[in-house]
Amino acid sequence: MLLIPCPWCGPREDDEFTFGGEADIPRPTDPDALTDEEWADYLFMRDNRRGRHREQWCHTAGCRRWFIVERDTATNQILGASTYDASP
């Protein structure tokens, strides 16, 4: 079980949250300008890193806000959380 540090509600059991996959994958501003390979990279390819991993979570059963969690995927240790406003 992970204790997810919701920036608005505090730490809560992961049961209350929805996992939203890797963070920092911005949607291309002009998809039509991309090659099929570039589009596929955006669409499907993931770093899937073993170690520090920035990822999206939504406090579905709470404030319903999306935010970013940094977690070590090898140990599940949570290293921090940030809101979209604050994130770089």
């Binding site: 992961d14 991993h53 995927t73």
Partner: peptide, 13 residues
Amino acid sequence: DAPVSYDLNGNFR
């Protein structure tokens, strides 16, 4: 388990 993880402690839920 929904989250990406290489950890072998699954969620007991």
